[in-house]
Every structure is written in C-alpha cells, then in structure tokens.
Design a protein around this nucleic acid. Sequence first.
DNA 1: CGCATAATTGACGGTTTTCAAGCACTGTGG
DNA 2: CCACAGTGCTTGAAAACCGTCAATTATGCG
Lengths: 252, 252
Amino acid sequence: MDTPRIAGHRSACSAGLCSGGQPEVECEDCGLDPICLVLDYADEESGVPEGVLIRRRPVERGEALFHQGDPFHSIYAVKSGAFKTLIPHADQADQVIGFHFPGELIGTEGMAVAAYPCTARALANSSVCELRLDRLPDSGRPLEALQRSIIELLGREVTFSHELIGSLVHQTAQQRLAGFLLSLSERLQRRGLPGRDFTLSMSRSDIGNYLGLAGETISRLLTRFQQQGLIRIQRRRIVILDPAGMAAASGS
Amino acid sequence: MDTPRIAGHRSACSAGLCSGGQPEVECEDCGLDPICLVLDYADEESGVPEGVLIRRRPVERGEALFHQGDPFHSIYAVKSGAFKTLIPHADQADQVIGFHFPGELIGTEGMAVAAYPCTARALANSSVCELRLDRLPDSGRPLEALQRSIIELLGREVTFSHELIGSLVHQTAQQRLAGFLLSLSERLQRRGLPGRDFTLSMSRSDIGNYLGLAGETISRLLTRFQQQGLIRIQRRRIVILDPAGMAAASGS
DNA sequence: CGCATAATTGACGGTTTTCAAGCACTGTGG
DNA sequence: CCACAGTGCTTGAAAACCGTCAATTATGCG
C-alpha cells in the first residue's frame, strides 16, 4: 500500500488487507466514519437501539444491495470490493450512474425520497457496513448532527454531479477516460489504497456506459494510452505510469 | 394562464401577474414554501430573528445573486424572471449548470460546503425571495424540520442530476433538445405558469452549453422542429404545438 | 441611423458509433 | 488434464453525427 496505516480501535483488520487479500479501507478513511462517530456518541448518551449499524456484511459479486424502487432503509459504506449503481431501463440498456470503492457511501440519495432511485450491484466479492436509518428513533438531539452530516454528503454529491456533467458534456472521449482514471486513482488514494496500480472491477462497457462512450472506444483509448507510455494494462489491472501525461491527456 | 389561482395569504400579487406584467409564481407553488411554513411556525413558537426571510427582492438582468466561492449565507427562490447557474472558467467558456424559473430554488448546494460552488446570474429582470440561513439560531427544535426539508431538496437534486447525466450522455442532439423543451414546459406548468407558450430567456449558446451542444446546433434543431410542425418560434418565444410529437422526438 | 450582439444557414472535417470478425481468458464438465 | 462454450476484449472499416469556421441576416440599443 502507498500509505500503510495502523488499524483503529473499531477496525478488525490490520494493514488494510483482509483474509481474502483484498484491499480494505480503514474506519478512519471511511465516508461513514463521521456518522459512525455520531452514533457511537449517541449510543453512550441516549441509547441507540441495537442493529442500527451492521458491520462488515459480505456481498457476493453480482448481488444487489438494493433495487430501484425498494423502500429506503439504509445507507451503506463499501469496506472492500467495488459496486456500481445504475438506473435499469426496460427497453434500452441500463444507465450506469456511478462506481463505489472502499470508503465510499451508497444509497444516500434514497433517503430524501423514501425509495432508492437506483440499483446497487457488486462488481466483485465485497463487504459493506450498513447503517439502518429506519431503526433510528424518530426524534432526539443526536439526529441534528446526523442530519448535518447527511446534508454535507448530499451537497458534495450535487457539486460532484455538476462537475461530472461538465466533464462528460464538454470533453472528448480521450479527456473523459483520462479524467476518469485519474479521479479513480485519486479516490482510491484518498482512502489509503494504492492509487497507481489498481484493478478495474467493471467491464469496458460499464465504463463506456458511465462516460457516455461505446465499449469499443474505451478499448481503443486504453491501448492508445498504453502505446503512449501513459499506462500499462493487463486485462483489468491498470498501472498508471505517467500521471502528468495522463493529466495532460485529460485536458487540464 | 393555464391554471388561474387565488392568491394565498402570503402572496402580494394576484392572478400570477406582477406590475411588470411578468408571470409570477404563487407562494403555494413555490419550492421555498415548505420551508417558509416551517419558519412561520418557528416564528410564533420560538421567535426567529427579523431579516431571515427577505421577500420579493428585485434583481436586474445580468446581475449576479452570488458568485462562485462567495461564503454561503442564503438560499433563494425565484418569484419572477429567470436565472442561470454556471461554473466560471478562466481559460475556457463557462459551464452552464442549470436554469431556474419561478418557484425554483437557487443555492441549496452551497449550504453543505459553506461556499457557493457556482455563480447565479439573472437572465431577465427578476425578483427573488431570500432565506438568510446564516441568521438562523444555531440550535433549537424547528431546525430539525428545516433540515429534513433541505435533505429532501438535495436528494431530489441528486436524482435529477443523475437523470440529466443519463439524458445528456446517451441521447442525440435532437433528443436532448426535445427533452429539454419538454422538461421546461413541465416545470413551468408545475408552478402554475403557461407551459406551452413561454419565453426562452437564455441565448441559444446558453442552451447549447447546458446540453453539451454548439449554439448553431440548437438553432438548426429549432428550425427543424418548426419545419416538422412540432413548435413555433418567434425570436425567443416558443410555442409547443405538438407535445406528443416532441415526446417522440425526445426518444421516449 | 449605425453599431454590437445574437441567430441563421452552409460547407467541411474530425471524432465517435456501429457493425462485424477474430482473439483471449474463465470456468465447467468430461 | 483438456476440450469447450461463453463472455468480454480487441481491432478494422464505413458511416453518421455534430463541431468548427465563415458569411449573412436579424434584432436591440444607443
């Protein structure tokens, strides 16, 4: 790992690796952490009921955490593995909304409308922490801090979506893919995982779908990046050799 | 107007028309209304300070409500006129993030990160209601209801962004523009304003920027729609003649 | 009335999609 | 252990679509 860490008091794993050898995020690096802390605090103070926070539930590859339209009950944090969220379409191909890596949250946008607006599916064998918000008491002071955290999360998500729209809509295929790989790299590193040598758990078509490109275009661009010495690809493993070159290719 | 309404007790205007003759949204149809109600309630119960809610402030065409990076203090509701939000770029052209019509809110996403992530600019002479959240007391029970409203708003915005991304990225120029005009029509109607005969306050380039297309493409498509008898255009005035045909052109 | 800005329209070229074929890898069952 | 099928990936060729550039017209404003 790029940045080895000491396991926190709430982490059952050390050195960021689990029994399966998959990289796993530490609690300190997890997006659910501020909320977990609120709940821990709440636990001592006012007695949050059991079963609100379910730690390290395993999810098998291909399994769905929830489907579009399911009544909202939980938000999830990825501990290991990877997920995609998508809007299923009966007639046409599904629309891939996002990818979720260790430390990142899934399902936050369902909270507002009482139902999940998308489906979340595991791209690999994974594990998640689940926060059952429906089992929280209806009122009480700790809720205000929790709500504040959620408002922050959603606000960041809106801003991210706006930036994403700008990227997707005003950039060429090469810029989109280079930017995508760089942002992936950055996201993994921010969570204490290796950011220059990682596995794309999703297919080329999934990436293309997400970026508004054909799967063939992704394939062609990856080989072009490799020919330019920017990256090295072995099936789904990606090594970023020249981050500066990638940044140039991403158009900023 | 399509649906004439009786002015509510908090509305200073009647029949949805203001002195300037511009269509104005009623309080009942305004996105800020649930929050206003919360504050009215709060006012009686616990005494919200004066100056929290500023009603019907006029904003001149070209004037900015706030700029990107300004410290967050307020969310705004458009009463009359129209706004665009954009991310300014020093080197390249600005990125248009969205358009805001009477009854719709501006600035919600700034709340989470304490600074506005975008600039809001009036496309026409307009008026807004301003809710100064920085003048709210730091704690107190009514906040919880307010926070819940804001979480709902942000959640809907996230979902909307996801759908928008899907549209922009997987549809042709014709589908995007047809869908854009239809969604505009629906948004205006939802707020009690005429939805089949309205004014595009923004330029062709603004629309193109927002949809990821060139201004020339917007121009060409509008004339094509008119040739097909779907719409009628006179400068910036649009009349939707065949909503069903537009829906077909939008690809769903 | 004249200038500045916005909108229209045409021609051309580049990028990306689509269609199609062949290849590589995985996992399964004999 | 190997053959096989299935899936995903790569690569090629042609066409569609949209962007850019440029010229012209229309509109608004002083």
